[in-house]
């Protein structure tokens, strides 16, 4: 990757590169990955490897088709971030073809067809997720239950068996799968149960007062804070997103606690933290101006809440992000910062 010599100043660089940025993001996702494996079993690891394999093939084919140099672009690691985001969104024990089609769709339609890295208006991971949600609604809602229900997670072999064959000899899959807390609350509400009842009935809080879902979110939070610290992502995204989500859920929870879940539940279930630090921070599809970032993130926060509570899907992250992606050019245009020496 050593090509031309710099022909004009500056003749120095801080040695940052796209690949390094992407790798840092990947590293920041590791705590969540480990927590996931611990709490839900090896399903996610298998899914992740399936996704990587798919990504490699898709990237190679697409780059070849587009006549681009394969090596520099396949090693820019941006596909890795895309599929990592996607893998966390699908059930760990989902059939293998779910992640394969999802990844292929995300990379092909989400990135390459728009001209590759940097040119895609929609977040590829969320595009793939939305595609899966619409195409395979059943598979996408059958989540593996965390160990607090099952006592012990499936081991690697069992997970592989489930993913590739759909069953494990001698075991009933119903024991291992169920609804996510978001779904549970939703179902409860439709059955006339108040949110408090649903939350109290289920033994959702187990490990030190936090559910497995909560722990995954905390792991994402950890990685995210590290990314803000090291300057990989801008603080505006998570602050805007989580801030607006917390504010709006606090408001509605105060109005009617029976229908609207409390703030901590909202922030620590579903893909909230994943979105806050790993998805909406995808710079390509996000707003770039400082104020624009905040507006963009706030918009997603509000949309997520709206979709979760009044929409057709239990978790509105994918659609909220895609919707805000559309608004990005507009936001960018109206949030240009004041240039030095100019009056606004």
């Amino acid at each position: 990757m050593s090509q031309s010599i710099l022909s004009s100043s500056p003749y120095t660089h801080n040695n940052q590169s796209v690949r390094k940025v992407m790798l840092q993001v990947q590293i920041a996702a590791l705590p969540a990955l480990i927590a996931h494996i611990y709490l839900f079993g090896f399903g996610i690891a298998i899914q992740w490897m399936l996704a990587v394999a798919t990504a490699l093939v898709v990237e190679y084919v697409m780059l070849k088709l587009r006549g681009r140099p394969v090596l520099p672009f396949i090693s820019d690691m941006s596909a890795l971030i895309t599929i990592t985001g996607l893998v966390f969104c699908i059930p760990p024990e989902a059939p293998w073809w779910v992640i394969v089609t999802g990844s292929a769709f995300a990379l092909t339609f989400g990135k390459h067809l728009y001209g590759g890295l940097g040119y895609n208006p929609f977040n590829p991971a969320m595009l793939g997720y939305a595609f899966l949600l619409i195409s395979f609604p059943v598979q996408m809602t059958q989540w593996a239950l965390p160990i607090e229900y099952t006592g012990e997670a499936l081991n690697l072999l069992q997970s592989a068996q489930v993913i590739f064959t759909g069953q494990i000899p001698g075991l009933s899959m119903d024991m291992y799968t169920g609804a996510t807390p978001l779904n549970e609350v939703r179902n409860g509400l439709s059955q006339g149960l108040s949110v408090q009842d649903t939350l109290n009935n289920s033994a959702l809080s187990s490990l030190w007062g936090l559910s497995s879902w909560g722990w995954i979110n905390v792991a994402f939070l950890l990685g995210g804070v590290w990314m803000i610290y090291s300057g990989v992502i801008s603080w505006q995204y998570p602050v805007g997103f989580l801030g607006s989500l917390a504010a709006i859920s606090l408001l509605f929870n105060q109005i009617d606690p029976a229908t609207y879940p409390p703030v901590d539940f909202v922030l620590l279930t579903g893909g909230t933290m994943l979105a806050a630090f790993f998805i909406i921070t995808d710079p390509v599809t996000a707003s770039t101006t400082p104020r624009g970032k905040l507006i963009y993130a706030c918009g997603i926060g509000i949309l997520v809440y709206v979709i979760r509570n009044w929409g057709a899907f239990p978790d509105g992250i994918a659609f909220a992000i895609l919707l805000m992606n559309i608004a990005v050019p507009l936001i960018d245009q109206y949030t240009q910062p004041r240039v030095f020496g100019h009056n606004r």
Binding site: S17, L117, A286, P337
Partner: peptide
């Protein structure tokens, strides 16, 4: 040797 020029990923570093 300098790294190959990649597409802009809109990271906003330059703006910062």
């Amino acid at each position: 040797p300098v790294d190959m020029q990649m597409p802009c990923i809109r990271c906003g570093e330059c703006m910062d």
